[in-house]
Simulated assay, not measured.
Amino acid sequence: MRQIRTTFAALTGTLFILAIAGVSQATATHAAEIVIIDGYTKTVRESARIPVACPTDQVLLGRAHFGDENGETTYYCGLIVIDGQRVKVGAPSWSDAQRESNSFFAAPQNGVLVGRQHSGDEKGPTRYATASLSAWGRTVELTSYRWTPGQRESSSHSKAGDYEVMVGRQHSGDENGQTGYQYARIAD
């Protein structure tokens, strides 16, 4: 009888260890549920020098512009939710201004765009606001960075794909010049 109890205890211990190993393995391979929700939208006259910044805990998802520097630019912001928790967006940091007609801007690694400001025509200054993302006290990482093909600025529209956020923009020339956008995917 003692031998049966010892064997049962050993078997139970082995099953318990296997069960724990299975839980750890299942946790390690868990794919995060990522949801990006359309949020704040703002339309301004491009040349007006109005800084547009996404509200608290929102990031840029897209931009559209129609016309010349007196035309309208629309900014699309959104919220990111990972496994039911809203991602925190850090305080914005504004870049130095650069001339719009030959501009290139990309957020730092794992940083996202949260705002933009432009003044005047293509010779005028443009600057960008970036921020970091965090959830559960850890940095939210970005992956699969990509640039869109160029499109004519005066009739441009671009929005992030599934699980993506805007991280960069480039433009050359005037309103007839090409604009491209950089997006990155939220890592799961």
Rank of each mutant, 00 (worst) to 15 (best):
I20K: 06
T139H: 09
G71A: 08
A31H: 07
V59Y: 02
D57F: 02
G124T: 11
L15H: 09
Q117F: 07
T179D: 06
L61V: 03
G150Q: 01
G78M: 10
L61M: 08
L11H: 04
I4L: 11
Q182C: 02
E141N: 08
Q170A: 04
A160Y: 08
Q117D: 10
A10H: 09
Q182P: 03
E122W: 07
R45A: 08
R127W: 10
Y163C: 03
G120M: 03
S101W: 06
H65A: 01
E72P: 00
T179P: 06
H118R: 03
H118M: 09
N102S: 11
G13F: 11
P125T: 10
Q98W: 04
E72V: 00
I4C: 02
T6I: 12
T14D: 04
G137Q: 11
Y181D: 02
H171A: 07
P149Y: 09
G39M: 00
E164M: 08
A28L: 15
Y128G: 01
A53F: 01
D83V: 10
P149T: 14
I4F: 13
A135N: 08
I17P: 03
K123T: 15
I17G: 00
G173V: 06
S95I: 06
S119N: 14
V114H: 02
E72I: 03
S156E: 10
S172L: 05
H171C: 02
T148I: 07
S47Y: 12
S154K: 12
E69W: 08
R99D: 09
H118G: 13
T6C: 09
A9W: 08
G78E: 10
T73I: 07
K123V: 12
A107L: 00
T12Q: 05
T41G: 01
V44R: 01
V89P: 13
A184L: 02
H157I: 15
T6M: 12
G62S: 05
G22F: 14
W136F: 14
A106G: 13
A64V: 06
P125W: 15
E46N: 11
A9G: 05
V165F: 13
E100V: 02
I80V: 11
F105G: 04
K42L: 07
G150R: 07
V167T: 09
G39L: 00
P125C: 11
R116T: 10
